[in-house]
């Protein structure tokens, strides 16, 4: 494992911890898109179907369980927790996220590394992850004032994606037979989606003002 991959996994882990911290201690999920969280729960469930068929390492297994468990529990909290669910911006979070799933499934059926159930589900999870942040970005744009934790959550997610791109470049040059076109293309698309948010985030940080996205 290289430093970019490890740093990428850690920023991903921190992003989840920031979100859980917000939900557990402040009992609020204001500014967080349930649509995006539901998509992530589906992404991890469909990607980690190999959890019981392929053993890679203890690290890999534990991280998979953390991402599965945390994404499902975040959805549960936002939907069912009697205090947390009241802070959910339901009227603002209107992205029709189910419409994203069908094209991703069709694309996975057409473009995959091998036409097997696990491989098609794996490709589907990558395509869906690439666009899963969209409802969250739309919600951020609608919310006038973005609190620090929400901003940090999206920033950490973006950092995780950028570090994974560096990890792929590093692995491509240091490992033989390391070629994953599906992962790369969908990963780069996903990283580009964050670029716009990053721009405004750094502007507000530089000018030391509260983050506000243009309407």
């Amino acid at each position: 494992m290289n430093i970019f991959r490890l740093a990428g996994d850690m920023t991903h882990l921190f992003s989840v911890l920031v979100l859980l911290l917000k939900i557990h201690t402040i009992k609020s999920c204001a500014g967080i898109s349930l649509k995006t969280q539901e998509l992530y729960a589906i992404v991890f469930t469909t990607r980690y179907l190999d959890l019981f068929t392929t053993y890679i390492s203890l690290y890999n297994t534990i991280m998979k369980l953390i991402f599965l468990g945390s994404s499902i529990s975040i959805v549960w909290y936002m939907r069912h927790h009697k205090v947390v669910r009241r802070s959910y911006d339901k009227d603002q979070d209107t992205f029709r996220h189910y419409l994203l799933m069908l094209p991703c499934l069709l694309l996975a059926l057409l473009i995959n590394e091998k036409f097997t159930f696990l491989e098609v589900m794996w490709a589907f999870s990558l395509y869906l992850e690439a666009v899963a942040i969209l409802p969250q970005l739309v919600l951020l744009q609608r919310t006038r004032n973005i609190d620090n934790l929400t901003g940090q959550y999206v920033l950490l997610l973006g950092a995780y994606r950028a570090l994974y791109v560096l990890n792929w470049i590093y692995r491509y040059f240091t490992e033989e037979n390391y070629v994953h076109w599906i992962t790369w293309v969908s990963g780069i698309v996903q990283t580009l989606l964050y670029a716009d948010f990053f721009y405004y985030y750094f502007q507000s940080w530089k000018n030391n003002v509260k983050l506000q996205l243009p309407a």
């Binding site: 996994d9 392929t54 091998k114 794996w122 037979n177 994953h180």
Partner: peptide, 10 residues
């Protein structure tokens, strides 16, 4: 996945 090309990323 082929040898050396496992889905070992998260």
């Amino acid at each position: 996945p082929t040898e050396g090309n496992l889905h070992d990323e998260l």
